[in-house]
Nucleic acid binder design. Structure first.
Lengths: 186, 186
DNA sequence: ATATAATGATTGACTAATCAGTCAATACTT
DNA sequence: AAGTATTGACTGATTAGTCAATCATTATAT
């Protein structure tokens, strides 16, 4: 694990526990076991670190989902796989997922270039639009459907983590709630 | 408008724009047009101010919703009225609503006494439980249903504010999406 | 009615602590 | 020996919170 990674995971932990400004860069360096100055070698400013963290973990999630998405399954199966793998990633990486949520509702989200945000959303929007054209999903704005789906994921995540369900029970709940979601939008 | 209210609205504005720790208490006092020390007369610490703000606005929302809820309508009508009035409140008070969301995903949420959180949620949970017993809503954990509903409200809010829809178009979208939500959980 | 006292609200200069970020010195690699 | 990565003491700026002094308001006494 190189110093950059040490800094990233220390920062993740402290930001989620104490908030962005509630975490001093010196505390991050300490937690990472590196010197104060080293942090600024890898990230020019604290803001740059925070934004880099968001892009880093969001990319990790996007990559995980696309790696788990079958190439030529039908649309329902594709969307289902994407929803479920997002959720599994969130359950396995609660701190990273909470960081993303915290970032989304913070003023920092405005500092991320629109290009980067679009690039992560575009493929999903395209898939939804395709499903709407084929008459699978109800005719409605694609970005509303996207919002409904992503919020459902967040919702499942909150539920699954608040109760301490067994893996089997988790899967069962996720399956039923996905079918409910699917019924809603089709 | 007394000083306490001036401080509250100044704090709301700055916290939403700059984050909790990104906002200095001196800036809040300045924005409110009161002296530094006056802020600490009304709120012993900055943390106390932040938490008081959350409870204040959450109460405002809860009160608004319950004021708009008909006494003896049927369950669907009751829940529908609650969802719609939450949403209208959010649209009319975007800064307050964003503050609540920002607070929810921040570490401060852990500092709010469980009693206070429960008191706001309980009546809604009771209503959902009643609907489940009567076989109106599908048999599933009441708190999951509650999560699904509140997240849907957040989702509508994001959609309605991202597009700049006319009031009429807003109502139309909200009506259809509520029916979708209702179909999903019943 | 007027003066005086008492109470409480408000002020802003102040402090000790903390912060992000720098940089000259040091350690490690090639 | 040259180049690169790392260090941590340091700085100027900013922070939350304090407090003695001032101001406003109301109550009491003459």
């Amino acid at each position: 694990m190189d110093k950059r990674d040490l800094i990233i995971s220390a920062a993740l932990k402290l930001f989620v526990n104490n908030g962005f400004h509630g975490t001093a860069t010196s505390k991050i360096a300490q937690e990472a076991g590196v010197a104060n100055g080293t942090l600024f070698q890898y990230f020019k400013t604290k803001d740059e670190l925070i934004i880099a963290l968001y892009i880093h973990f969001k990319d990790e999630l996007v990559e995980y989902v696309s790696r788990n998405t079958a190439e030529n399954a039908d649309i329902k199966e594709t969307i289902k796989t994407q929803v479920l793998s997002s959720l599994f990633w969130a359950i396995d990486n609660p701190t990273k997922f909470r960081f993303i949520q915290q970032f989304h509702t913070s003023p920092y989200i405005g500092q991320v270039e629109q290009d980067i945000l679009n690039k992560q959303v575009e493929p999903h929007l395209a898939l939804i639009q395709k499903a709407i054209k084929q008459g699978i999903i109800k005719p409605m704005p694609a970005d509303l459907v996207y919002l409904l789906i992503t919020n459902q994921v967040f919702c499942f995540y909150l539920f699954v983590t608040s109760k301490k369900l067994s893996k089997a029970k988790q899967h069962e709940t996720i399956e039923t709630t996905f079918e409910m979601l699917w019924d809603m939008i089709t």
